[in-house]
Structures are given as structure tokens and as C-alpha cells.
Amino acid sequence: MQIPAEQFKERCMELIENIQKNPEDITITHSGRPVAHLIPFLGKKERTQEIFGFLKGMVEIREDIIKPLEEKWKADE
């Protein structure tokens, strides 16, 4: 949803109540340009599930990641 700042100012409390019932992002614009983003608050449990562990099983380490590279860099010259 996108709303001009003037309308947001008038309907702020209504929009906050609505975002609790129907969680959707609201982009607030000024002169047609986005200036702010209102997003629903996610509880700690929901945030943790989204952020931590979402890439589990996506990375595979095939070699020693600590050993130096044998490649010469321009900075070494």
C-alpha cells in the first residue's frame, strides 16, 4: 500500500490498527517520492525464525578456508 504523507498524518492511528489485523507494508510518500516505510512488528520468535538458519544447508566448504591463497596480488608486488 502506498499513501501520501498528508493522508498518513490524518489516518495514522487507523492505519496502525489496520496493520495489526492485516499485516502489510505501507510506503509513505511526499510529492510522489517514497520517504518512509511502515511495516508490521514481528515478535521475537517470528524474527528469529526468519533470520537465523534460513541458509542452513546452502553452503558447502570443500577446502581449508584459512590457508593462504597461492595467488599473487598487485599489492604484494
Rank of each mutant, 00 (worst) to 15 (best):
M1H: 15
M1D: 11
M1L: 13
Q2E: 12
Q2R: 03
Q2W: 02
I3G: 06
I3T: 10
I3V: 13
P4Y: 06
A5R: 08
A5C: 04
E6C: 00
E6T: 04
Q7D: 10
Q7K: 14
F8G: 01
F8V: 00
K9L: 15
K9H: 09
R11E: 09
C12M: 14
E14N: 10
E14H: 12
E17A: 13
E17I: 04
K21T: 12
K21Q: 11
N22Y: 08
P23C: 02
P23V: 07
E24H: 06
E24K: 09
D25K: 13
D25E: 15
I26G: 00
T27R: 07
T27Q: 10
T27P: 07
I28C: 05
I28M: 09
I28L: 08
I28P: 03
T29W: 03
T29S: 04
T29F: 03
T29H: 03
H30A: 06
H30F: 02
H30Q: 10
H30S: 09
H30R: 04
S31F: 07
S31D: 13
G32A: 03
G32D: 00
R33I: 10
R33L: 14
P34N: 11
P34L: 11
V35Q: 14
A36N: 13
A36F: 14
H37Q: 12
I39N: 03
I39G: 01
F41P: 01
F41M: 06
F41L: 07
L42H: 05
G43Y: 11
K44N: 15
K45V: 14
K45F: 09
E46H: 06
E46M: 09
Q49S: 15
E50D: 05
E50K: 15
E50F: 14
G53T: 08
F54Q: 08
F54A: 09
L55D: 11
E60F: 05
R62S: 11
D64Y: 00
D64Q: 00
I65N: 03
I66Q: 07
I66K: 03
K67A: 08
P68G: 01
P68V: 03
L69G: 11
E70A: 02
E70G: 14
K72T: 10
W73L: 14
K74M: 14
K74L: 15
K74T: 10
A75F: 05
A75N: 03
D76H: 13
D76W: 06
D76M: 10
D76F: 07
